[in-house]
Structures are given as structure tokens and as C-alpha cells.
């Protein structure tokens, strides 16, 4: 789907929540796209990046500096607010509930991962259906594919980073093989697409 058509589709579906998943190579990729979100009264962003289980989570601090959206580590039970980027804490799964709150869980790792991208995507698919947009970036495992399939089956929109430019192509490749994403984009295209989406006005 062309950039413009996809933008129109996102606007007509009134995308409310953007869920992003990445693993190896993810910090650099996120640095390219997360600053794209400008002041927005409608969009909330939730991110899972696979991290080592122990130690303090320094990721939100890293992104506070470079993002216009407010950046924070997700807390259990807090309301999902527009204009925020939420990162999952290390060693907890992050979900978005249908009552528009965030929840954490210490259930078993999925695909050897906690936080799991599939769990975040799956919860966004159920809670926001066609108003959810899933983005899968660089990574060296297969997390995220099942979650994107769920987003697709609920009418949401799926974007995949072009595996040929991904630092670790396994994760986007796995998803690209398993579903026909709405678009496969390199980070540069994704950046301008997200800038436009966050600038466009819809209620």
C-alpha cells in the first residue's frame, strides 16, 4: 500500500494506539522513529524492547531527551494517555487493557522473552481493534509475528521494518513471511510516515 493510501487508511480508522516491538539493534532504530511523534492529542505509544532482566531500566531516560512526546516506564494500572510513549519495565510483560489502562504481568516468558512483543500486540489488538497500529523493527528472534497477525485479524494496521536494512533481520523477516503487512518501510520512510500521521487531525 502506498504511503498516502496508508495514511488515509490510518486516519479513517482513527488510529489511537501505536505499539512498537523490537529486540537486538532496537535502540538505534527507535532513536530514528520515536522522535517523529509530535504534539498529538490522540496518539499513545507503547514500546517493548527486549532487555536484560536485571538492573535499572535506563531506556526511558535515553529517549526523554530526544522525543517530543512524554516518555516513561509503564506503571501497573495507570491510564493510557495521548502524547505519551510508554516503555515496558524489564522482566515484566506489558498489556493495554480495554478500559484504557496499562497492566504489567510476571507470567512466564513467551518466546523466551519477558517482556514479550506478542503479548503487547495481542492486548492492543483486543482492546483497540482497528484503532491499533503495530510496528515491528529489527531483532534476532521471532517475537512479534503472532502479535502482528492478531492485530491484522482485528482490523488493525501492521508496519514492518524492511528486513534488508534492519540491523538484525530475523524478526521483521519472520513477520513479513507470515503476513501481508500493510507496508514494509525503511526507517526513513517510517519516520516521515509517522510524522505525518501524528500531524494529521482526526477525532
Amino acid at each position: 500500500m502506498s504511503h498516502d493510501n496508508l495514511l488515509r487508511k490510518c486516519i479513517s480508522q482513527k488510529i489511537r494506539v501505536i505499539v512498537v516491538g523490537t529486540s537486538a539493534g532496537g535502540i538505534d532504530a527507535l532513536k530514528r522513529i520515536l522522535p517523529s511523534f509530535k504534539d498529538s492529542k490522540k496518539l499513545s505509544v507503547a514500546v517493548v524492547i527486549h532487555l536484560p532482566a536485571r538492573g535499572p531500566n535506563l531506556i526511558p531516560e535515553l529517549f526523554k531527551e530526544i522525543c517530543s512526546f512524554k516518555v516513561k516506564e509503564a506503571e501497573s494500572g495507570e491510564s493510557l494517555q495521548p502524547g505519551y510513549i510508554y516503555f515496558s519495565p524489564a522482566d515484566y510483560h506489558l498489556s493495554i487493557e480495554s478500559n484504557e489502562t496499562l497492566s504489567l504481568s510476571s507470567e512466564e516468558p513467551l518466546n523466551f522473552s519477558r517482556p514479550s512483543i506478542d503479548i503487547l500486540f495481542d492486548s492492543a489488538a483486543y482492546s483497540f481493534e482497528s484503532k491499533a497500529l503495530g510496528i515491528l523493527l529489527t531483532g534476532a528472534n521471532h517475537d512479534g509475528t503472532a502479535g502482528l497477525l492478531k492485530i491484522q485479524s482485528k482490523g488493525g494496521i501492521c508496519l514492518i521494518q524492511d528486513p534488508s536494512e534492519a540491523e538484525y533481520p530475523t524478526m521483521p523477516q519472520s513477520a513479513a513471511k507470515s503476513l501481508s503487512a500493510n507496508a514494509i518501510m525503511n526507517l526513513k520512510q517510517m519516520k516521515s510516515f509517522l510524522e505525518e500521521l501524528s500531524r494529521s487531525s482526526y477525532e
Binding site: S95, I96, E97, S98, N99, S103, S105, E107, I119, D122, S123, Y126, S127
Partner: peptide
């Protein structure tokens, strides 16, 4: 109970 975790299980 939080719904999404119950639903997954």
C-alpha cells in the same frame, strides 16, 4: 482481575 492476562490464560 486484569482482563488481558486472564484472557491470555
Amino acid at each position: 482481575y486484569s482482563k488481558s492476562s486472564l484472557r491470555r490464560r
